[in-house]
Amino acid sequence: MVINFRRFVIVLTVVWLGLFVLVPHVLVLLTSVMSPDPQHLAVWPLTLNSWGRLLEPLYAEVFWHSLWLSTLTTAICLLLGYPFAYIVAKLPGVWRGLLLFLMIVPFWTNSLIRTYAIKLILGNKGLVNSLLLASGLVDEPVQLLYTPFAVIFGLVYVLLPFMVLPLVSSFGKLDGTLLEAAHDLGAGFWQRFRLIIVPLTMPGIIAGSLMVFLPAMGMFYVADLLGGAKNLLLGNIIKNQFLVVRDWPFGAAFSVALIGIMAVLLWLYFLANRRINRAGGLDDESF
C-alpha cells in the first residue's frame, strides 16, 4: 500500500508531464532547428538560421518591453493583493470564503466582453471621462484608452486573482500568537511586518508572483485591445510567426529562447532567495 500510493503518484506525475509536456516541447525544439518552408511549415535540413535571427536587436527591445510590462503588473498586483489578502485572511471563515469567491466570480465572464466593458470605462466618452468632464476637472476628454495606462489597468485586472488566492492561503497559516508575542515584546508594526509577516508568507508571495509574472510574459491580447496594438510583445511575435508568416522554425526558436531565458532568470532568483532566507516556493531543486 505504501509503495503503491507513492508509486502511483510518481508515475502519474512523470507520465502525464512526459507525454503532454515533454514530448511536445521536444518537438518544438526540433522544429526550431529545421528549415522554414512556406508550403510545408518546417522541413529538413537542420539549420541554426532561426536561432541566429534571434540576435536581431529588435527582438531584444521587444523582450525588454514585455519584461517591463510583466514586472510592473506583478508589482502592482502584489501591492494591491498583499494587503487585500491580509485583510481577507483575518476574517472569520464564512466571510473569508465569501469574499474570495466574490473576487473570482467576475472572471467567469468571457474575457472579450469584459475587455469591451473596460473600454466603455476608459474610452473618450467612457465612464471615467464623463465623470471628469462633469466634475469640471478637465475640459477635454483625457486619452486613457490605447495608452500604456490602459494596458496595465487591464493586465492587473486579469491577473489579480492569481496573486490573491495563493496569498490568502499563505496568510491563513500565519500564526497569530507569534505576532502577539512580537507585539508584547515591543516590536512595532514595521518590525513585525518585515521580520515575521513577510518571511512567513514568502511562499505565497513567490507562488503568486510566479503565477502573475510568467503568464504575463506571453500575454498579448489585453495589450492589443486596450493598448491599441502599437507595441509588439513577445506573444505577438510568436503568434505572428506561427499563424501569419508561418515560419514555424523561427516561431519555435523564439518560444524556446523565451522559455530558456525565463528559466535562467527563475533559477538565479531561487538561488538568491535560498541564500537569503531559505524559504522558496518550488525551490531551486526544481532545475
Binding site: 473600454k119 466603455l120 491580447y221 485591445l225 496594438a229
Partner: peptide, 12 residues
C-alpha cells in the same frame, strides 16, 4: 485587432 466599428461607435 477585433472589430473596427467598435472604436468608431464609442467615439474614440
Amino acid at each position: 485587432a477585433d472589430a473596427p466599428r467598435e472604436p468608431f461607435l464609442a467615439g474614440d
